[in-house]
Structures are given as C-alpha cells and as structure tokens.
Write a protein that binds this DNA or RNA. Structure first.
Length: 544
DNA sequence: AAGATGACAGCCCAAGTCAG
DNA sequence: CTGACTTGGGCTGTCATCTT
C-alpha cells in the first residue's frame, strides 16, 4: 500500500459535519492506519509518512472521538499512549551512567575525602602513590552549566544527549550540532572508534547580558540567569533557535569508549584538546592536598574575572588505575570531589511559616519570604525541613533571615539576624495537630518528623498518596493527573479516601463505558492495562 | 552477640525554561 | 495552565560494617 493512500487529508470532511455513520467508519480506518504506522515507525524503524502527517492522523482521531465519545473504540489509538512517537525528544540510555559529584564546602571536607582515599589504598605498594603531599590530583573549575554527552563514532558526532536522571537522558543531537565549540569531526588521530565525550554546556556572562539587552530593547522578556537560559536553549525543538544562542562546551570526561586512550585524567584532557575539543584552560595538575587547597583559594579570587560562572573546583584522582579501583557509588564516583565556593547570600523577612502535609503524614514547614533576589533568581520560599531545624535556627515569624541558594540552586535559610528581630516576636510553636484534618500530630522517638496520625482519614495524606501513585506509575487517565487531584481537593470533591476511590471509579467507568463497577472489576482492569499488581495498587491508595 | 556507627538509595525541595 | 526537565542539598529509613 502506498503511503499517500493512507493520508487522511485527501477528501477530509470537517469533523463538525460528520454524520455518526461516517465518523464510525473513519475511526475504524484511522485505528488501522495509525497502528500500521506505529508498527513501521517502532518495529521496523522505517516510517512511510512524515511525523507531521502522523500527528495529523492522531489529531483527527482525537477530534472525532471528542465529538462522538460513544464511538470510541476498544482498540482506539488514543488509548495506546505507549505507541505514540516521542512528541519532543527521544530518550537516550547512558550505557555508563552520568553521575553527579560528592560535594565539599569546607577544607575539612576535602581532607576527609583524601583520608577516605588513603584508607582505601592501605597496601604498602599503593601508599606512596596516595601520600598526602604527593597524590596527583587534576583540579578543574566547575562550570555552572549543564552536563552533556557527545557520542563520536569513527570520529564523527552521531549523538548528543542530556544527563537526565543519570541513566536516561534526552536526544539533543540537532541542538548540540549548532555549538561552535563542538566539532562535527574529531581532529588529529588516536581517538577510539567509539567514544562518548562528556562535558559542560554553558554560556558566557557577557553573551548572556548582550542577548538579554537585545531582548529588552525589543520589549521581550529577559531570561533570569545564564544557566537556566542554557538549559532552556538545549531543549528547543527547533535547532535554528538554539543556533542563535551563544552556547559553548568544555569537555571534561567520558563515558563509554571502545578502547582506552589515556592513563590519566591529565592525559585524557590533552587528547581531547588534540582532537579539537574545547578544554578549560585553567585546569591544573596538583600534587598533594596543600596544592589543591591553594588552587581552590586562587580560583575563588579570580572567579569574578572569568568570562563564565563557576561554582567551585572539581578534584579528580589523576591516575585512571586508581580511579577504577576506587569505583562508583550510586550517585557519585569515589574518585572525585566538587569543592564548592561559598554561596551568595541575601537578607529578607520571613512573613510566615506554612505547614504542608505529605503522603506519609509528615508535617513540613516552609518559610514564606518577602521576595528577594539571590544569585540571579527571585526567592520567596525555602524549606525549613522540620521542627528541630526551626528550633536550631530559632526562626520566628517576622524575623529577618539570611537566605542562600544551596549549590547555587535550592533556596535555604542559613540563619536569623537577631539584631533585626521585631519586638514581641515569639518562638515558633510547631503545631501539634494536623492543619488539615485536626488529628494529633506526633513524633516517634528518634524521628525528626512530626506526623499526622490521621492516616487516610486525613484528606491531605490521601490526596498526596494518590498523587504520588499517579505520577510514579504514569497512571495517566485523562482528568486524573496530579494537578487535577489537587484541584478536586480544593473544590471539595475529595474529603476522604472513599471519595478518591469513587472518583477514580467514576472516571474510569465512564471511559470504559461500564455502568456500575465493583471495586474488584476496576482493579482487575487497571491491573491488566497497567500491569500494576493488585497489592501495590491497594497499598498505594490505602484502600481497606 | 548486641549495639553503635556509617554508607547508601530514594525521595523531596524551589526556581527557570520550554513544549503542548 | 500542566508537565517534564535542569540544577544540588539534605532528610529518612534501611542495610552493612565496626566496636564493645
């Protein structure tokens, strides 16, 4: 069958004009056509029609279904969410996970790091290599951007990906290709047949400011800071937009490779440079702890004169043999450390403390702040974590507090400016009852959190559990997303767990065209469609 | 063997950005 | 407007290892 024959825009009647009979027939044809293209696209990787044409098919199907809900087929394409081609970016699995780094804020943390390494290599033949005054450390500025992985095969760039959760990222190849500092072909020689080079995509401050100045002149909204701007730029669907944004790339590491190409981090960086990649010029090979700390101090001083933002220094054990033996932890390698600079701080007034109730009933206090700019963004909330944390800081409503962005990202309350405490401010009294259901909120011995004892009597807990369940399992029933559940609660539609269950049952029953449904039938249907075990489902919802 | 300590995984937090 | 994705710190509960 020829592709054109499947295209719907030949003899396509406006949906409003369709008679029921015609609609029924067309839905049947669309179901077959879409399934056909899904198969070609996914199984055979040989699509017959363009993505745009395919989208048109699905849109038409959806439009007809919207007008004739009673005609929705059991095998409707709109139900097979998994079969749809990725609307935006396709996923990329990192064969070697992209981990983050362990952080150090104080010199002592750095010393602890080296102590751990020394402790790891206790064998006499290793000891000399990791001696405090001799251990080789590659120290590099930690660029404040976002990490990316570039896959080169036979020296040609074939894939660019974001880090994602470290295991699965997004395919941003088209956008990556627009970076001038990312070569399409590796130069020189000696590169492995396949190598995945990792580094940081960033934007220089001057370029960012110039870009914003132009936007401001044009009356457009300006961006908040270079890092988020860079992140947004890489997620553009249209690479020509990315191309206009002055992004740059520094290579600092690698993932999967077909062959070894260096024996040390320093050597690897030198290779990258030979191959035409951009490597940060301020990196330095240090010997011993004293040298790395001196390097950190130097860089903290020259930080402001660099053309881009950095938030610290990365130390890597230079010898790859030692690196391999140290290995990885779940979140970070054992052979590297990020030594951060002190975060930028600001003062503002804490207007109130808001208590939220989590899915386990945990009462979490959040500070509501007078908006203040810290490190390029406007901060108005910050977590206070728990009861003890408030007490430790003796934070009172009305207090002026010092705010910083942990890791230059997450707002955090560092402390209180006692001199500016308003007269009459009283120590904060943590509620002993759940603000939602009024049940007793208690602390188990040894626990930091105070918890609402209402269980599923508590609407907040019930709602949060359902939200968690819905988002975690992509239990995507139209009209029952995470936000909808919150809204139902606000509207008073959910007041107790039974309500949630009924609501869920109603929504599903309506879509499935069932009439009255029993709990078991509902659960069985969900079980079948989503491969969620009955136990898990009941647990997650807390249905008795 | 029991208790204490440490490491670790998993989750949540807040803000900016883009896609749909 | 909602959802997904980026950034990193820190709490929580569990499990492994160390100490008494």
């Amino acid at each position: 069958m020829r592709a054109q024959a499947m295209a719907p825009h030949i003899a396509e009647r406006p949906v409003e004009l369709l008679a029921e009979e015609e609609a029924k027939g067309e839905l049947a044809r669309l179901a077959i056509a879409i399934a056909h293209h899904d198969e070609l696209y996914h199984a055979k990787d040989a699509p017959e029609i363009s993505d745009a044409d395919y989208d048109r098919l699905r849109q038409r199907n959806a439009a007809i279904e919207a007008r004739f809900p009673e005609l929705i087929r059991a095998d409707s394409p709109s139900r097979r969410v998994g079969a749809a081609p990725a609307a935006g970016f396709s996923k990329v699995t990192h064969r070697v996970p992209m981990l983050s780094l362990e952080n150090a804020f104080e010199e002592q943390d750095v010393r602890d790091f080296f102590a751990t390494v020394r402790n790891f290599f206790r064998r006499p033949e290793d000891l000399a290599r990791v001696a405090e005054d001799a251990i080789e450390i590659m120290a590099e500025p930690k660029i404040d951007g976002l990490s990316a992985a570039l896959r080169y095969e036979d020296g040609r760039l074939v894939l660019g990906a974001t880090r994602g959760d470290g295991v699965t990222g997004e395919d941003i190849t088209a956008n990556i290709r627009t970076l001038e500092t990312v070569p399409e072909r590796l130069a020189g020689h000696g590169w492995p047949d396949m190598i995945e080079i990792r580094g940081e995509v960033y934007m220089e401050r001057a370029a960012f400011l110039a870009f914003n100045a132009e936007r401001a002149a044009a009356g457009e909204q300006v961006f908040a800071n270079p890092r988020n701007f860079a992140a947004g730029s890489l997620r553009q669907l249209d690479p020509s937009v990315t191309a206009k944004r002055p992004l740059k790339f520094f290579a600092y590491g690698w993932g999967e490779t077909s062959a070894g190409f260096a024996r040390s981090q320093a050597e690897a960086l030198a290779r990258f440079r030979d191959w035409g990649l951009s490597v940060n010029p301020h990196s330095r090979l240090c010997h011993g702890i004293a040298e790395v700390i001196a390097y950190h101090r130097d860089l903290a001083e020259t930080r402001a004169s660099l053309p881009y933002d950095i938030d610290g220094v990365v130390y890597k054990i230079n010898d790859l043999d030692l690196q391999n033996r140290l290995g990885m932890r779940s979140r970070a390698p054992r052979w590297a450390l990020a030594h951060k600079f002190a975060a930028e701080q600001a003062q503002t007034v804490m207007r109130d403390i808001m208590i939220t109730v989590g899915r386990q009933g945990t009462l979490t206090p959040t500070a509501m702040l007078e908006p203040v700019t810290v490190g390029g963004v406007v901060v108005q909330r910050a977590t206070l974590h728990n009861e003890d944390e408030i007490q430790r800081k003796d934070a009172r409503i009305g207090d002026t507090v010092i705010v910083q962005r942990a890791g230059d990202v997450i707002p955090q309350i560092v402390g209180v400016v006692l001199e500016r405490r308003p007269p009459g401010a009283e120590p904060y009294k943590f509620p002993e009852k759940c603000p939602v259901c009024d049940s007793l909120a208690v602390r188990e011995p040894g626990m930091a959190a105070r918890r609402c004892t209402g269980g599923l009597i508590c609407a907040a807990q019930a709602v949060e559990r359902l939200k968690h369940f819905v988002s975690r399992d992509n239990f995507d029933i139209e009209g029952l997303g995470e936000k909808h559940i919150g809204a139902f609660w606000q509207d008073g539609l959910i007041r107790q767990p039974g309500d949630i269950f009924r609501l869920k049952a109603d929504v599903i029953a309506e879509r499935e065209g069932w009439g009255e449904v029993s709990a078991s039938k509902l659960i069985a249907a969900i079980d079948e469609r989503r491969r969620i075990s009955l136990d898990r489902f009941i647990n997650a919802l807390g249905i008795p």
